[in-house]
């Protein structure tokens, strides 16, 4: 009797917990604001500027979700999270979605019970060395001292790389990017290793960038993407398709500037590209299927822009970070960014 009461209570509690945590989309709508877990400050990906406006590639994903859910990309509250606090903050419900240059890995997907819904930046770990070291490949770094941020996956990747290539190295542990640069510039280490996107940004901050080279090897896969909690696929869909909308928009050549013209053209011309008509809500109501407005894609493109625009504005070749599209080009241009068909 007692046992059954206990089990019943547990079952009821589980059910209740399930009910309580279901429907993040409804929670977000009720709150009137998206809580987006973001970096405490990473150039090009997510950081507030002098007047407190958040910008970055990751930030744009959050803005796109807000544009889809509310029709207003400003209804986002960015919650700065450190490397240690990010996953717990997501699990405990402090944020609705985590877009904080987090690598999609097996254990995070399974053990930490996260769902990575897309990959908004394909990164990989690289090396930067002084030019006068005369090294042209990471495999020539035998016996080198390497500056590395402790407690990151890059540390493990580095050990793996040197082990598989049967060469030796001495790690110099540093706490963060700024300190790493300091040590590297002062000559405390021969090479600095971190994600390639970070390396490019760091190189731009050195006092004489031309004296340093980034080696061609990329020694790891770092797919960075937005993550949500397990168990709410509907919410995951909203994030995923907000992001895919940005990709499809780029693929179809729809930009912030021309979206109004294209809506007009697609409305006037029933023979216009059917996927564009569906995307922009001219034909049918695609938004209803995931519980958002029919014009969600229009709002995303109008207020945030397509993926290419976001990329160029935040990390592209015209910014000091100067990243080439590379793996992050659309699949039509030899990259990996590929959105499933919107139908």
């Amino acid at each position: 009797m007692r046992k059954s009461v206990f089990l019943g209570t547990v079952a009821a509690a589980t059910l209740f917990a399930g009910l309580a945590s279901a429907g993040t989309l409804d929670d977000v709508k009720a709150r009137g604001q998206l809580l987006c877990g973001s970096n405490t400050g990473l150039t090009g990906f997510g950081s507030p500027d002098a007047s407190g406006n958040w910008t970055g590639l990751d930030v744009d994903v959050c803005r796109a979700v807000a544009a889809a859910v509310f029709g207003d990309s400003t209804k986002v509250k960015f919650v700065p999270l450190t490397g240690e606090t990010r996953f717990t903050a997501l699990q405990s419900g402090e944020v609705d979605v985590l877009v904080r240059n987090s690598t999609w890995t097996y254990s995070r997907d399974t053990d930490l019970k996260l769902d990575f819904v897309a990959v908004n930046y394909y990164d990989g770990q690289g090396f930067m060395v002084k030019k006068d070291l005369g090294v042209s490949s990471a495999k020539e770094l035998d016996g080198a001292t390497v500056c590395i941020q402790s407690g990151t996956t890059t540390e493990l990747n580095l050990a793996d790389f040197f082990k598989t290539n049967k060469i030796s190295y001495t790690p110099v542990n540093v706490a963060d990017d700024a300190e790493a640069l300091r040590q590297f510039e002062a000559g405390a280490c021969d090479a600095y290793t971190t994600d390639a996107s970070g390396l490019a940004a760091s190189r731009a901050g050195l006092s004489s960038p031309q004296d340093y080279v980034i080696l061609p090897e990329i020694i790891s896969k770092e797919p960075l993407g937005p993550a949500v909690r397990h168990g709410d696929s509907a919410w995951g869909d909203v994030i995923r398709w907000s992001y895919f909308t940005m990709l499809i928009a780029e693929e179809k050549g729809i930009t912030k500037a021309n979206v109004d013209e294209i809506v007009k053209a697609a409305t006037d011309d029933t023979n216009y590209d059917p996927e564009v008509r569906r995307l922009l809500g001219v034909d049918g109501d695609m938004g209803k299927l995931m519980g958002v407005d029919a014009k969600f894609a229009y709002n995303i493109i109008k207020q945030v822009g397509n993926y290419g625009e976001s990329f160029e504005a935040n990390v592209g070749t015209n910014t000091p970070i100067g990243l080439a599209r590379g793996l992050n080009a659309l699949w039509t241009q030899g990259g990996l960014q590929y959105a499933p068909p919107l139908r």
Binding site: N39, S47, A201
Partner: peptide
């Protein structure tokens, strides 16, 4: 960290 993440002040 925020100040340093500004491109102008990186480094």
């Amino acid at each position: 960290k925020i100040v340093r993440s500004d491109n102008a002040w990186k480094g």
